[in-house]
């Protein structure tokens, strides 16, 4: 019964409604930013910015192309952050929705190892060491509403529903888009619950749009070891 997003970047106009709706619903403060010569603002995800429309300008086939990528947590099916934390009070999965959720107890974790475990470079740390990221608007989803970013999207870029439905929608859109963009693809469909449709090489959109091969091939040695030791560790605790 896991929920999933389908983010169709071919429809995105970078209006940033999702970004603002996310801030609005979560009562997050604004960032103080400076003009860096791009409309992408703020520059990066932060402790109080869970959603960010990344914008890149690329010359593709001698034509200026503006690529938009509404970046957010992917709510991984096997979440490396959750496995690295090994503390369900700090990072846990909501079994009903599949959302990966962070609590205030993330303060007790080693923030750097959690952040570096994320193949998509999503979690961000506050000064006091608490870590935050997108929570899939779990409160809304439990009450039959769509996440704030999806509800507000005027173009149909952001979609949310049962994982199977989103996969089907993704495949349907991919087939349609392929006619015009032969290199179009869905990103990391088997690993994540936030499925992106892109028309060009994912690295042009964002360095971490897709999980790097090194991370994709498996979890880090440290996490693998811990996973192996888990049955023993829980025995030890008894």
């Amino acid at each position: 019964m896991a929920k999933a997003f389908f983010i169709d970047t071919t429809l995105c106009t970078a209006c940033r409604g999702c970004q603002v709706a996310c801030k609005q619903w979560h009562d997050l403060p604004a960032e103080i930013t400076t003009n860096r010569g791009t409309f992408q603002n703020p520059a990066d995800l932060t402790f109080s910015t869970y959603k960010l429309v990344r914008m890149t300008e690329e010359v593709i086939d001698k034509k200026l192309t503006w690529l938009f990528f509404p970046d957010q947590c992917r709510h991984c099916i096997e979440a490396p952050c959750l496995e690295t934390a090994e503390n369900s009070d700090a990072i846990y999965r909501d079994e009903d929705t599949g959302a990966i959720l962070y609590t205030i107890k993330t303060k007790e974790l080693d923030a750097e190892s959690i952040i570096s475990s994320c193949p998509y470079n999503i979690p961000r740390k506050a000064e006091d060491g608490t870590i935050s990221k997108c929570d899939m608007c779990n409160d809304r989803v439990h009450n039959g509403l769509k996440p704030a970013c999806v509800a507000t999207c005027p173009t149909g870029t952001m979609n949310f529903g049962e994982r199977e439905e989103m996969l089907a929608l993704g495949e349907k859109r991919l087939a349609e888009v392929k006619e015009k963009f032969p290199n179009a693809s869905l990103l990391d469909t088997d690993e994540v619950n936030v499925i992106y449709l892109v028309t060009h090489d994912s690295r042009l959109y964002h360095e971490y749009a897709m999980a790097p091969q090194s991370r994709k091939s498996g979890i880090s040695r440290k996490v693998a070891l811990r996973k192996m030791m888990k049955p023993f560790a829980s025995l030890m605790r008894v």
Binding site: D27, Y102, I104, A126, T130, I131, S132
Partner: peptide
Amino acid sequence: ATAAGLAVSTLGFDL
């Protein structure tokens, strides 16, 4: 209104 929003807010220490 806690900077982190609901995800990391708490009203106690029992999770």
